[in-house]
Simulated assay, not measured.
Amino acid sequence: MKLCSACLLGINCRYDGRSKPSKKVLELARKEVLIPVCPEQLGGLPTPREQSELRGESVVTRSGKDITENLVRGAKQVLKIAKLFDVKEAILKQRSPSCGCGQIYDGTFTGTVIRGDGVTTALLKKHGIKVVSEEDL
């Protein structure tokens, strides 16, 4: 059993109200249980919502609103789900400010990618949960 970014399973929960289904993830879901999670929604943000990126230790929207608290709250909820089901691994959406694993956008909204982890990925890793991106499958 693994956690999985809900958008990778075809659930419309991304900032733009759409999904980002991954063929590899959908194939894996036929073989094992993947628990869909969306940290942004679990943190109280609506769908659709304004695009956001990590900028240093903060998460800001394109218009400059700080939504760090929402992403931290969502990450804590995802961790709670992981503990509830004794999950040891997660497959999360690459470059997301919540779910990015090894790659995130740089906070300039120019499409520039830098090394780093999203808020949820960082928290899960801190608690010993292995996180991979859909691109690593």
Rank of each mutant, 00 (worst) to 15 (best):
G74P: 03
K130R: 06
R14P: 11
Q77V: 15
C101Y: 05
Y105R: 11
L26I: 12
I35S: 01
K23L: 09
M1A: 12
D106Q: 12
E32P: 06
G107E: 14
A90L: 04
T61C: 12
Q51D: 08
S133F: 00
S19H: 13
L79Y: 02
E89Y: 04
L9D: 03
M1V: 13
H127E: 15
T120F: 10
D16T: 12
G128S: 09
R55S: 15
R14V: 07
C7H: 04
L42H: 06
S22C: 12
A6P: 06
R55N: 13
K83M: 05
L84T: 14
R30F: 01
P39A: 01
Q94R: 15
I129E: 05
V119E: 01
Q51I: 10
I91F: 03
R18N: 14
Q41H: 06
V113Q: 14
V78Q: 03
G102T: 11
K65W: 06
Q51M: 11
R73F: 00
G74L: 05
I11Q: 13
C7R: 05
K65V: 15
R30M: 10
V59M: 06
S133H: 01
L124Y: 00
A29H: 02
V33Q: 11
T61F: 07
K125M: 07
E57L: 03
T68L: 05
K88I: 03
M1G: 09
V78S: 01
G118K: 05
K20S: 12
E50M: 08
Q77A: 15
G44I: 10
T110R: 12
R14E: 12
Q41T: 15
E27C: 01
E40C: 13
K88E: 14
T68H: 04
V131E: 10
L92R: 04
M1S: 14
V59T: 04
V87L: 07
K83Q: 14
Y15S: 11
N12W: 03
L34W: 08
K76P: 00
E32W: 00
I81W: 08
S22M: 03
E89A: 11
E134D: 13
Y15V: 07
T110D: 05
K93Q: 12
R55E: 09
R115T: 15
G10F: 11
Q94V: 09
G64R: 02
A82F: 10
R55M: 12
V119A: 03
K93S: 07
S98F: 01
E32H: 02
A90C: 05
K88N: 11
D106T: 12
Q77N: 07
I91H: 02
R14I: 06
D117R: 06
K2S: 07
S5D: 04
G107R: 15
V33K: 15
C7M: 05
T108V: 01
E50A: 08
V37Q: 07
L54G: 03
V131D: 10
P48S: 12
G10A: 09
G107N: 14
R55D: 05
T121Q: 08
T110I: 00
G17W: 10
R55Q: 14
T120Q: 07
K83E: 13
K125C: 01
G10T: 10
S52T: 07
N12M: 13
R115L: 15
S63T: 14
I104E: 09
K76I: 01
P46A: 11
A82P: 09
L84V: 00
S5I: 03
L71H: 15
G107F: 14
L42F: 12
D66T: 08
G102K: 14
